[in-house]
Amino acid sequence: MDAEEIRAIFKFSVQEKNIVSSFETQEELFLPFLLSLKSGGSWSYASEETKSIAVKDVITYYDEDSKTGYTLEKIYLFIDPEVIKEEGIVRRLEKCGTNEERELVERPYSITMKAKKVILAEVNPEIRKITIRELKKKSILLKGTPAYSAAHELEHLEKGEIEGIPLWNFEYIKQPAKNEYKKVE
């Protein structure tokens, strides 16, 4: 690592410290956000007094003409989250932490959560900017992958470990080969 890279890391760290302290909340509640930003995925944190979860959502913008695009990441940080409503059931495979294999779990298709504070960060790799703000809304409806992620992290806060049916309880079924033709245009 050269001196320029070390300076860039220090500069980024100072910005990070300043942005976190600007929200006037316990700094450790931002740990899920920082982990989501740096390592990807959704994360949770709990102490005896409080808890927080970060839930990531992604939107890809792609220009067919230029054949270029980028994926905008939205990271929601919920401080003291609470479920208002869940709807639907989606069965899915998830892997978590030190578990070796994925497990079958049931998650809601949509989840409405409220929190003491909801902070939204938008990470735009196209312009290399991280825009972060506290939302005035204290409840958010999440659908699909962000809802599954939120339910997963809430299960961590509630139970510690994720409980599911191990993959080895599945059964392989071999089907005969099929002649599949694709129409070429």
Rank of each mutant, 00 (worst) to 15 (best):
A8G: 08
F12T: 11
E16R: 08
I19E: 07
I19K: 05
I19Q: 02
V20C: 02
V20S: 00
E24Q: 07
T25Y: 04
E27K: 07
E28Q: 08
L29N: 11
L29A: 14
P32I: 11
L34W: 08
K38S: 14
S39G: 05
G41F: 05
W43G: 10
A46S: 14
A46H: 04
E49R: 06
T50W: 03
V55Y: 06
V55S: 06
K56N: 13
V58M: 12
V58Y: 07
T60V: 14
Y61M: 07
Y61T: 15
D63C: 14
T68P: 00
G69H: 05
G69W: 04
K74S: 14
K74H: 09
L77K: 02
F78I: 10
D80T: 09
D80H: 07
P81Y: 13
E86G: 09
E87Q: 08
I89P: 00
E94A: 04
C96W: 12
N99R: 08
E101M: 13
R102H: 07
R102S: 15
E106F: 09
E106K: 08
I111H: 02
T112Y: 02
A115N: 03
A115M: 05
K117M: 11
V118F: 04
V118W: 01
V118E: 03
I119D: 03
I119M: 02
L120H: 05
N124W: 02
N124R: 00
I127P: 00
I130W: 03
L135G: 08
K138H: 06
L141F: 09
L142Q: 04
K143N: 10
G144F: 11
T145W: 06
Y148W: 11
A151R: 01
H152K: 10
H152D: 08
E155S: 14
E155C: 03
L157I: 14
E158M: 06
G160A: 09
E163H: 09
E163Q: 09
G164W: 06
I165N: 01
L167R: 07
F170K: 01
E171R: 10
I173W: 06
Q175A: 05
A177Q: 09
K178G: 00
Y181N: 07
Y181L: 12
Y181G: 04
K182L: 14
V184S: 03
V184R: 00
V184M: 00
